[in-house]
Design a binder for these strands. Structure first.
Length: 426
RNA sequence: CGGGGUGUGGCCUAGCUGGCUUAGGGCGUCUGGUUUGGGACCAGAAGAUCCCGGGUUCAAAUCCCGGCACCCCGACCA
């Protein structure tokens, strides 16, 4: 991507209507734009990151047998009445059609997936099945906050599993947990993410959350450094030792819930009559699990966890681009350029252009800062703010050594790489 | 939903206490020039329903009433 063509640009001032670091920084760097409280547009850079997170999630969900579908955001009232959630789920956005028929914007999709599966699954031979989607969810939060961490509209991956019995659900539940950690690992969050025991809300005794430690978090959890688990404060009283292993390294931390998995049992299959015929020819309730994860919230959490005073430091797999390529040239005045015959300037242009096209041809995604009349300082500041993992500089200084300068965003060290070798660097 | 705060060119903001300004500055944009390894400088230019509606007044960005939006704290958060 040529930065001169990127329609967004960075801004210096912090937006006055955001206090959370993730929102301030993502807005400043041109990843997102705020439309109204809790509702954001994903701009080219932000959408790229969001898509990469979704791609990772897809890969890991497919790897555990997930089949992707896409359910509607607009859902009819009757299915919510079937499960008794039309009135009890107060974050539901409700609206009426011209025919006075009422709808809800999907806040979660058990009410859609359960009747769907009922149309196709009849026998124990067809179970288990794992179905997921990545979709926009709507929740009428009384108060949106923390930027992308708690919006009224947000993206969510929701996987639903369907089993013949609890035992089979338990097995898959463990598989799903592992897949979740793979995702967090690839998103650069695994070091700070803890499997956390939490309440099950309206339909199970307990659930497991995946909580990432950061001061930006809304949840308070107790973590155990010995057994690497955590317990949400909503289900535990203040105490000093881990109830699991007795370990003494048990402490209170702020965290963001980046995932939540539930054993639903027959909570939804019962009201919809989702049953199957077992080996003995008898009808039995399908046992369900559900597994949520919000890509947009994951994105915000990554920003909260990986940044420094200059901007974002994206983990490599989800960065909008692997590298920022900065062309820094000694431009001179038009008169001086004419006098100098432009020899040197052309050289820098040609070499940077070539590096850009070569790297792209090798599959390296590059954000090429080809902008003219922009000072070096501004290019550095932008590159740091946007936060691609590598920065490549082409300037008179580097060309004097027949090289480019390469610097990792997460390090202060620079190294010179010969022009011929830059392709092989990545 | 309770409490508090804020609303001024695209962005950040001064002015509001104590009414009368050509509504000031910075960023960004445009023109010209000087610069070029950490958001550089000079000169000029464009760009404003001062959130909306009503009221008080000779006169309102400023005071009063109502509304809306946004932010913060709390509550809430399958």
């Amino acid at each position: 991507m040529l930065q001169s063509k990127l329609f967004t640009k960075t801004v210096k001032e912090l937006p006055k209507d955001e206090i959370s670091f993730n929102a301030q920084t993502l807005i400043r760097a041109g990843f997102i734009d705020k439309v109204t409280a809790g509702v954001y547009t994903f701009l080219p850079l932000g959408l790229k990151v969001h898509n990469k997170i979704c791609d990772i999630i897809r890969e890991e969900m497919n790897a555990i047998g997930g089949q992707e579908i896409l359910m509607p955001a607009l859902t009819p009232k009757n299915v919510w009445q079937t499960t008794d959630r039309w009135d009890s789920f107060d974050a539901l956005f409700k609206l009426a059609g011209v025919d006075k028929k009422e709808y809800a914007l999907g806040a979660t999709h058990e009410e859609i997936i359960t009747p769907l599966v009922k149309k196709y699954i009849f026998s124990y031979k067809e179970l288990p099945v794992y179905i997921y989607q990545i979709q926009t969810k709507f929740r009428n939060e009384l108060r949106a906050k923390a930027g992308l961490i708690r919006g009224r509209e947000f993206s969510m991956k929701d996987l639903y599993s369907f089993h013949k019995d609890e035992e089979d659900l338990d097995k898959y539940y463990e598989i799903a947990k592992k897949a979740y950690f793979k995702i967090y690992d690839r998103c650069g969050l695994s070091d700070k993410t803890y499997l956390t025991f939490a309440t099950g809300g309206a339909f199970s005794k307990y659930s497991h959350e995946f909580q990432t430690l950061t001061s930006a978090g809304e949840d308070t959890i107790y973590i155990c450094d010995d057994c690497k688990i955590a317990i949400n404060e909503e289900i535990i009283k203040e105490q000093e030792t881990c109830p699991k292993c007795g370990g003494k390294k048990f402490r209170k931390e702020k965290a963001v819930e980046v995932g939540n998995i539930f054993k639903l049992g027959a909570r939804f299959s019962k009201p919809f009559g989702l049953q199957f015929i077992n080996e003995g020819g008898k009808k039995q309730d399908v046992i369900m699990g559900c597994y949520g994860m919000g890509p947009s919230r994951v994105m915000a959490t990554i920003v909260e966890v990986h940044h420094d005073g200059r901007g974002i430091i994206w983990p490599e797999e989800i960065a909008p681009f692997v590298a920022s390529l900065l062309k820094i040239k000694n431009q001179k005045s038009p008169a001086a350029r004419r006098a100098a015959g432009q020899a040197k300037i052309k050289n820098i242009d040609e070499i940077s252009n070539k590096i850009y096209t070569d790297l792209q041809a090798h599959g390296v995604e590059v954000l090429y800062d080809d902008r003219e009349n922009i000072s070096a300082g501004e290019k550095f500041a932008d590159a740091d703010l946007i936060g691609c993992p590598y920065r490549i500089v082409v300037s008179e200084k580097t060309l004097a050594k027949d090289s480019v300068e390469v610097k990792r965003r997460d390090s202060e060290k620079c190294e010179f790489v010969k022009l011929k070798e830059i392709i092989n660097y990545f």
